[in-house]
Simulated scan of single mutants.
Amino acid sequence: MSVVRTVLADIRPEELGVCDAHDHLFLRSPRLPGQELDDPRAAGAELAAFRAAGGAAVVQWTPYGMGRRAADLPELSRASAVHVVCATGLHQAAHYSPELLAGLRGRLADLFVRELTEGIGTTGVRAGFIKVAGGFHALDAHARWTMTAAAEAHHATGVAIAVHLELGTGALDVLDLLCGELGVSGDRVILGHLNRSPDPVVQRQAARAGCWLAFDGPSRAHHATDWRMPEAVRALAEAGFGDRLLLGGDTVTAGARSVDGGPGMPYLLRRVRPRLEEAVGAELVDRILTVHPGQAFGTDCL
């Protein structure tokens, strides 16, 4: 039986409800100094706002070493009545110290498997998927290392691999590596940030590989392409790939939270949902928000 591993328990995929399939409650990086998501009270308020807007689940893509605050997630989930799925994995090298990365050499896949099956540190919280990252139009040695470890952990556990595409690029290189060289089934790969480089040909090619296409935003840094997202979703649906789509908010800084004056998680349901319904109809948007996340993040191997 397929399950989705949340921070509280394994649940049936259909129990997720309306899901923000790519977001962050906590995140810390040297690339975002002074903009950390590191306040449990603000995270709780954001989840409550998302719940009030009709949300029921959030998938946090924050990986190892970037301030996940896994120990805080169960209580936040209970208090808000919002399911939370936590990631293991590793982001681009720029988000870490050289010393931390050196200490992970030779044991990265084991770390991922342990966090998926035994728990994150001493928190008892088990991750539900693996998050890694590509580079700008290419895969450097770090990306190949992390994706190779992710594939090994995937083969041991069956969980999905979610991929940050830098500025939305490199999707086909990622699929060549994960699905071609490393033997990961396309339907176990989730490509994030495709809205940031709205190339319809690449998007269709990625969809043909059977992977999930995640459209996430809005984003101040990538606002120039945000407006094209409904058009891209419609084009993919008309090409027969409506069943491969996910939606998320990707809140990465404190100022982007709705409780701090930004669009935040509720924007996905307040503004993105009705805008997409105009483009592709309410039935498909409902499936994207309530059915697809359970299929993408569920596994029957754990």
Rank of each mutant, 00 (worst) to 15 (best):
H137F: 13
L167E: 14
E238Q: 15
A206K: 14
V202I: 14
S80P: 03
S29G: 04
M1T: 09
E118S: 03
S185W: 07
G262P: 12
A160P: 08
T157F: 01
L139C: 02
D72P: 00
H95F: 14
L247E: 06
L177Y: 10
A138H: 08
A235R: 14
D72Q: 08
R271P: 00
W145S: 12
M229V: 14
G240H: 08
P266F: 10
G124Q: 00
C211R: 02
L104P: 04
G158L: 04
I288N: 06
D10N: 09
E277V: 13
V84Y: 08
R271Q: 13
V189D: 00
I11G: 02
T123W: 01
R51C: 06
W212Q: 04
A254G: 09
R28M: 15
E166C: 12
R220A: 14
Q35M: 12
E283V: 00
R78W: 12
E277P: 03
Q35N: 13
L276I: 08
V259D: 15
C301M: 06
S97I: 07
L172C: 13
H155Y: 07
Y64P: 03
A160M: 05
D243A: 13
A70M: 01
C179D: 00
Y267T: 10
R244L: 06
A52Q: 05
S185P: 12
H91T: 12
G55Y: 04
G119V: 01
L73R: 08
G67E: 08
F129V: 12
V113L: 00
I161E: 02
A87P: 02
V163H: 03
V285S: 11
L194R: 08
G170I: 04
V201E: 07
P263H: 03
P40H: 11
M265S: 11
A221N: 10
D72L: 11
F129P: 05
L247F: 09
G168P: 01
G121K: 07
H155N: 08
T169L: 09
D199T: 12
V4N: 14
N195R: 02
D226V: 01
G158I: 02
R234Y: 08
A235N: 11
G262R: 15
F112H: 05
F136L: 13
R144H: 11
A254T: 14
H24K: 09
E36R: 02
D187P: 00
L16P: 07
L8K: 07
R41D: 15
A102H: 14
D300I: 01
G248S: 15
G294H: 00
P98W: 11
A254M: 08
M229S: 03
G119F: 01
E15T: 04
A209R: 15
A206L: 11
A235V: 00
H222M: 07
T169H: 10
R273L: 04
I161Q: 03
V252T: 15
V233E: 05
R196A: 03
T123C: 01
V189A: 06
E75A: 14
V159Q: 07
R68Y: 01
A21N: 02
A224E: 10
Q35C: 10
D173G: 02
I161W: 05
G255H: 05
G262W: 14
A279D: 07
L32S: 08
A171M: 04
E231H: 13
G128Q: 07
G34W: 05
R107Y: 03
V59I: 15
T148V: 05
W145I: 06
L76K: 09
E15P: 00
L182I: 09
E166F: 11
A81Y: 02
W227V: 07
V174R: 02
W212R: 03
G103K: 05
